[in-house]
Design a protein around this nucleic acid. Structure first.
Length: 321
DNA sequence: TAATACTACCGCCACA
DNA sequence: ATTGTGGCGGTAGTAT
């Protein structure tokens, strides 16, 4: 049993209470009873405590100082409120040393400024809250700023967009550390979607894009979503991926967190949703088109996934638009 | 809604 | 020794 993953949250004065809490919630909670490996969290004061919660009128204290960055496997910077300058040099130095030592560093929202002032983002892609993006790009021309993603990261440096995108980044890190299944458990427990994609403004579309480009597996899945009206078995998908059914199922679960059939059903329901929204086709025909065979079967899976019937959904969608 | 036939899933294990 | 593979069989889930 490896020791728990160590997460240091580097907070300043003031600090953003939501972002700080996100990291605590994802990494600090003991969910071993659900099969999630334990992590250990320490909130580190980047300046002498007490630290004031921005906009919330309370303060926090913590026994941990900069030396704790030497202890961490992951250092998270949840926010920073002085665009025009970075933290004191000892702080930046401790961050650089943590990274050089092999630790992973991540920022939420305006925390990207801290990583930028430390030089850890030079030559990399990075993101931050969209309200800071222009200022950030101007201040750090050596950084490739992409304001349209929820998070970006390569190697061991990650940045995430505003506020709630911190959750997406944390779940991504959990996925890297413990696999998609564990990340899904944590997401489920927090009652957030396991994966969101695309720009900051838009909401989740398909529950599981074929993530983590695994060899032929990704190809097989891409084929599947284009041929949902056909009969698709795990065996045929495995053949397409040039894997044995057993190995296919195992790899699939490792990279997506669900089983092939469950994923297929999800894709089929998503297609049914689109057809209900954009066409006048009868439910029976839609059931055929999305590979669910019969209207009865479509109703069953539609209800399970969305909690309504196809007709009710179509009606509600019409009214909304 | 119930019964039936079929498929998927996953632990186990031997093997590379 | 460690890690991934893939066949087998019981059980759970799915389709009609």
């Amino acid at each position: 049993m490896p020791r728990p993953h160590r997460v240091a949250i580097l907070a300043f004065d003031p600090f953003p209470p939501f972002e700080l809490s996100v990291a605590c919630e994802v990494f600090g909670m003991d969910r071993r009873d659900m099969g999630v490996p334990l992590s250990e969290v320490r909130v580190v004061a980047g300046v002498p405590a007490p630290l004031h919660a921005k906009g919330a009128g309370f303060t926090i204290d913590t026994p941990y100082g900069l030396e704790t960055l030497r202890w961490a496997d992951t250092v998270i910077v949840p926010g920073w409120y002085s665009k025009e300058r970075g933290p004191e040099e000892p702080v930046l130095d401790a961050l650089r040393k943590a990274y050089a030592r092999g630790a992973r560093v991540a920022s939420f929202c305006s925390g990207a400024y801290v990583l930028a002032y430390a030089g850890l983002l030079d030559g990399r892609r990075a993101t931050t809250h969209w309200v800071y993006a222009a200022d950030f790009a101007e201040r750090f021309p050596q950084i490739d700023v992409d304001p349209d993603v929820l998070y970006v990261g390569d190697d061991r440096v990650f940045t995430s967009a505003g506020t709630a995108a911190g959750i997406d980044l944390c779940l991504h890190m959990v996925r890297l550390d413990h696999g998609a299944e564990v990340a899904n458990i944590v997401a489920r427990r927090m009652v957030v979607p396991p994966h969101r994609d695309g720009g900051q403004a838009q909401f989740i579309e398909a529950p599981m894009p074929p993530r983590c480009d695994d060899d032929g597996l990704a190809d097989a899945l891409a084929w599947a979503v284009e041929h949902l009206d056909e009969v698709i078995t795990v065996e045929s998908l495995a053949r397409r991926a040039r894997l044995s059914p057993r190995t296919f199922a195992r790899r699939f679960k490792a990279s997506s967190g669900t089983t092939p059939l469950q994923w297929l059903l999800q894709q089929r329901v998503v297609l049914a949703q689109r057809l209900l929204e954009t066409t006048e086709l009868p439910v029976e025909v839609i059931a055929q088109r999305c590979g669910l065979g019969s209207a009865a079967n479509l109703r069953l899976h539609f209800g399970r996934a969305l909690g309504t019937s196809p007709n009710a959904y179509r009606f509600a969608f019409r009214c909304a638009s």
